[in-house]
Amino acid sequence: MKRLASIAFATAMALFLQGCAGWQSALDPKGPAASELAWLIWFFTGLCAVVWVLVMAALAVPLMMRSRQHAEPLTLDASSDNRKLRVVMTAVGLTAVILVGLTLLSFFANRTLAAIGSDAALTIRVTGHQWWWEVRYEDATPSRILTTANEIHIPAGEPVRLLLTSTDVIHSFWVPSLSGKLDLIPGRMNVLDIKADKPGVYRGQCAEFCGAQHANMGTFIIAEPRAKFDAWWNDQLQPAAAPTSDEAKAGGELFLKRPCVMCHKIGGTPAGGTVAPDLTHIASRQTLAAGTLTMSRGNLAAWIADPQGVKPGAHMPVVDLSGDELNAIVAYLEALK
């Protein structure tokens, strides 16, 4: 049994170390909030492990003993019970001290976290939908307000304020390597400040069960140097690229004739639907359907041809398209960089 246990432990440790390098891990912090939290997690874990070992040691004591001290269960040794009482009282006292310490630690960690975003200059409104994220960059100049989906570009090294809400059910925004999670609740607005120390792509996903496709509601925070971020914003403000090839032109016209236009917006065209992700620059994004598929011509075609096969229960309906029509629409969308 011991052998089995040690093999299991070794396997677990190996798995553990392998996974620390994940890009969606609370143990792999890439920002000040997550770093503070990772430290807190390790501290609590260490202390709890010590307590557990002590309790197990106390449990092992009687197993080491040889025999009983008394034959009749009601004949008790008063002095031994007094000794036990002292031990128990000490243990309870220590428990209380540890708990008060942890409460204070947790309280001050919370203050540290609250201070991270106090000087955030950039505000992004994130609205949860079944099963994608609407991302709106706020700006004092109305023409600079930008709406996109699922991928959130931020300037690295700067705190960013996220305003979280939902129009349907409750979702929870969680990018573990940057910060703890916070819910998106219809009728309420929550504020989450995040900061990425370095440029990089940090994955997150919805953490509050939100229906059929809760599992496929991913998001990405893409932290870039300030200049690159500003350039990205300016690019995204441009209307959609006009199609160049004949196939793409046909695709653009088809898009407007088919039900696609009822839900999706493409800037610079009559397509103005707002219940589904904005597609103005869809091809500039790394994934499709909120992290479900990587962006490619094949995946675009697969998603349009069979959304219910890719993401069962998703609100994207099956649109009846011939093979040529599908290719045309894909060619059009693929060029929307």
Partner: peptide, 15 residues
């Protein structure tokens, strides 16, 4: 006890 801590809970809640 870990989950009782507000900040720590935000990393592990619903996981």
């Amino acid at each position: 006890v870990m989950l009782a801590s507000v900040p720590l809970d935000l990393q592990v809640h619903d996981t």
